[in-house]
Simulated scan of single mutants.
Amino acid sequence: MSRLPAAAVLLSGLMPLPGLADAPLVVRIVTAQVQPTVTTYAISGTVTAPDSVAISARDGGRVITVGVQVGDHIAPGQILVQLDPTQANAAARAAEAQLAAADAGLRQARQARDRAAGLAERGAGTVAGLDAATEALLAAQSARDQALAQVSKARQAVDDTVIRAGAAGIITGRTAEPGQIVAAAQGLLTLAPDGAREAVFHAPDGVDLREFIGRRVVIRSLDAPFLSVGGAVSEISPLADSASGTVEVKARIDADAAQPGLGVPVMSEIDLRNDPVVSLPWTALAAGPSGAAVWTVDPATQKVALTPVTVARYTADTIELSRGLVAGQLVVADGSHLLYPGRQVVAAGGKP
């Protein structure tokens, strides 16, 4: 009896038997359909005021009392900070004394001018004397006006030692403490006026958000998700935060909506439309020489070919392909592990 070489026997075991190779393999076949995709991002943030007011002292001095804390709601005219008025009161009294002296000088100059005018009318005085008295009157009047201005300035300085709220709002910052010496125009408090509010979100970097300017969004409270208000995206930061790697997105809350409190945590969702893709079951994915691939079926011969594809993203149940397939192509969804190029297949159930 003749025997085949051992190598021939081994190769014959790796080759498909003639009858089995010709038998079409029953597989599940799907038709590639191109469809648009939408990616939804859930973003979170907090409610802030679009504008803030820095409250400072007009003149420097020592802080006596600070009557508010961060988070307090204040009313117009409410006393916020009091500075030591000792120096201002002393300056005001000195100015008032100068005003009294100027008033006395003005009365004397006016009397002297009246006497000079009377003497000139009777011929007992000279024109030069009348002119001198008139000039002295004008100088006294100027001195009195200057003293009056100094009094007004000094009294204003006294009033400025009591810092009041110019508008209703919420205190969002405080840097002044009793006993502190502050300079002129140094910030003491920060006020967020009542009125408009905006939500500041942190969106993932790498997502093109430019098209969202002006887009309507629904803003929900994280503490009470059933409470929501409408708004519109008003600003998108051109740079990502280096610490968090996120992009700041601001949405102005509708003016006619119930404005949430400052610092309230909120969330919203943004939907981004991506380029159309072909969505297939994840079981259709195979490995080709150059990477991801799928088995496509020639509708005329029912034979398969390994087709390279580009995977745009993975989902829980599908793969989304951005390149490699066109609408209408037949793709093997199940059974790809039994395929090889040129293998003939038949769709389970008779139709792809």
Results as ranks from 00 to 15, higher is better:
267 M>F: 12
255 A>H: 02
237 S>H: 06
41 Y>S: 13
170 I>M: 12
136 A>K: 02
176 A>H: 10
255 A>V: 05
300 A>P: 05
2 S>M: 14
14 L>G: 09
89 N>R: 15
178 P>V: 00
22 D>H: 11
106 L>P: 09
346 V>A: 03
143 A>L: 05
268 S>G: 11
262 L>A: 12
22 D>M: 14
56 S>Q: 03
108 Q>G: 03
200 V>A: 05
331 V>S: 04
295 W>G: 12
271 D>P: 07
292 A>V: 00
122 R>H: 13
34 V>G: 04
302 Q>R: 06
119 L>Y: 13
321 L>S: 10
252 R>K: 13
104 A>W: 07
264 V>I: 12
255 A>S: 15
57 A>Q: 05
288 G>L: 09
38 V>K: 04
248 E>W: 02
223 D>Q: 14
253 I>G: 07
321 L>C: 10
195 G>D: 09
135 E>F: 00
336 S>N: 04
286 A>T: 09
97 A>S: 15
331 V>W: 05
168 A>P: 05
161 T>G: 10
78 Q>E: 15
95 A>P: 06
42 A>M: 12
277 V>Y: 06
4 L>H: 05
339 L>H: 07
280 L>D: 01
333 A>L: 01
118 G>H: 05
330 L>Q: 08
102 A>E: 00
158 V>H: 01
95 A>R: 09
327 A>P: 02
59 D>M: 04
269 E>P: 03
89 N>G: 02
26 V>H: 02
190 T>F: 00
147 A>T: 00
137 L>V: 05
178 P>R: 08
107 R>C: 04
294 V>G: 03
336 S>L: 02
23 A>F: 03
337 H>R: 12
255 A>T: 11
3 R>V: 13
84 D>H: 10
6 A>G: 11
98 Q>W: 06
196 A>H: 00
234 S>M: 04
217 V>F: 11
318 T>M: 11
299 P>D: 12
65 T>L: 10
321 L>M: 05
186 Q>N: 09
182 V>L: 10
293 A>C: 02
265 P>W: 10
269 E>Y: 15
168 A>Y: 06
228 S>G: 08
33 Q>H: 11
231 G>C: 09
172 T>P: 03
332 V>D: 10
116 A>D: 04
162 V>L: 13
277 V>C: 08
278 V>G: 00
265 P>D: 08
187 G>R: 14
320 E>W: 01
313 R>H: 14
166 G>M: 07
90 A>G: 08
320 E>A: 08
153 K>I: 01
55 I>R: 10
278 V>F: 01
207 V>H: 12
208 D>R: 00
148 L>Y: 00
